[in-house]
């Protein structure tokens, strides 16, 4: 029993990376199709938007906050992007560049508003971002009347194609965002302040850290990355679908938590989030390959979440 507990502690420390490696090897043996290049590219490409959302969510959760609005921001971005790209008001190149910039700005504005409401109006993140989730979603439905915007230029959809080499657009962008996030958290004053604020906000304030600015920065970042996620999804589908992003905020939170970042703040890393996100993505992919119905997959992922949280308990007790 003691040896078992010891093993759990070790597993918990490097937990998520070990678990990901075991899962990867196991699925490669169990399924003849899992290790295929095509399947691997497909998994990464398909999950790129969620992983990008999870990067932003990691920053927010490190400050002991939460952002429930990212799913709706994805929808809003997708619709705005599609609206700019569609029609023939300008040469196609201008429309696409305008769409990408416009989408990013929408995400940034939503995130910035979240940060302002949380720090200046002093509303808890859960409530503030819940409100933003409703408002952004409502705006999307009002604007589109729940209809999908289609007829986007092929060049736009090409950015989001799932076959090589186009798929590299999203995969490389995602990995680059993880690397940049890691550099920010590890090597910049802002990143270190994020950990300090999450660990002990009052001590951070007394240290002379501008806690409000850190929080606004974090939500701004999370919203902007939700914008990027929305861009990715709209290019993947080559349309502006108001239903996009639904429940994506919960998947992003799941990736962060499975990746070992504490909901209490101050502890965790983006690499953990990447591993957590991939762990869930591979699990779903394997279940699909084995032909398990989509609805059953949700149940399996739910059980996996509890297992991950259970392992995390050993790390906190350590």
């Amino acid at each position: 029993m003691n040896a078992f507990k010891h093993a759990l502690v070790i597993l918990a420390r490097y937990g998520i990376f070990v678990a990901l490696a075991i899962e990867f090897v196991l699925f490669s043996f169990l399924s003849p199709h899992f290790f295929d290049l095509g399947n691997q590219v497909n998994v990464l490409h398909q999950n790129a938007p969620i992983l990008v959302l999870a990067v932003g969510m990691t920053f927010v959760i490190l400050t002991a906050g939460i952002d429930l609005s990212v799913g709706s921001v994805v929808a809003l971005t997708a619709v705005v992007t599609a609206q700019i790209a569609v029609g023939d008001w300008a040469p196609v190149g201008v429309r696409i560049v305008g769409a990408l910039i416009g989408g990013g700005i929408v995400g940034a504005i939503c995130g910035c508003l979240n940060g302002l409401v949380i720090t200046k109006v002093r509303i808890p993140p859960f409530v503030a971002t819940l409100a933003m989730m409703l408002i952004a979603k409502g705006a999307v439905l009002v604007y589109t009347n729940a209809r999908t915007i289609s007829g986007l230029p092929d060049e736009f959809g090409a950015i989001g194609q799932s076959s090589l080499p186009h798929a590299l657009f999203h995969i490389v962008t995602t990995l680059a965002l993880f690397a940049i996030a890691w550099v920010i958290l590890r090597f910049t004053p802002f990143g270190k302040h994020v950990y300090a604020v999450g660990n002990n906000p009052e001590a951070a304030h007394l240290c002379g850290i501008r806690v409000s600015m850190v929080l606004i920065g974090v939500y701004l970042l999370c919203g902007s990355l939700a914008g990027v996620g929305g861009l990715m999804l709209s290019t993947q589908l080559n349309s502006g679908d108001p239903k996009l992003g639904e429940l994506d905020e919960l998947e992003a939170i799941a990736a962060v938590v499975v990746g070992g970042t504490s909901l209490m703040g101050g502890r965790g890393s983006v690499w953990g989030t990447l591993a957590g996100g991939l762990l869930i993505a591979y699990l779903k992919n394997y279940l699909t390959l084995e032909g398990l119905p989509f609805f059953w997959q949700k149940i399996v992922v739910g059980v996996a979440l509890i297992l991950a949280a259970f392992l995390d308990r050993f790390r906190t007790e350590e």
Binding site: K192, Y195, A196, N199, N200, E202, A203, A204, L206, G266
Partner: peptide, 13 residues
């Protein structure tokens, strides 16, 4: 404890 140290961070940090 409550308002001074960052318990999860290193001495250097």
């Amino acid at each position: 404890k409550k308002h001074g140290i960052f318990g999860d961070l290193s001495v250097a940090e």
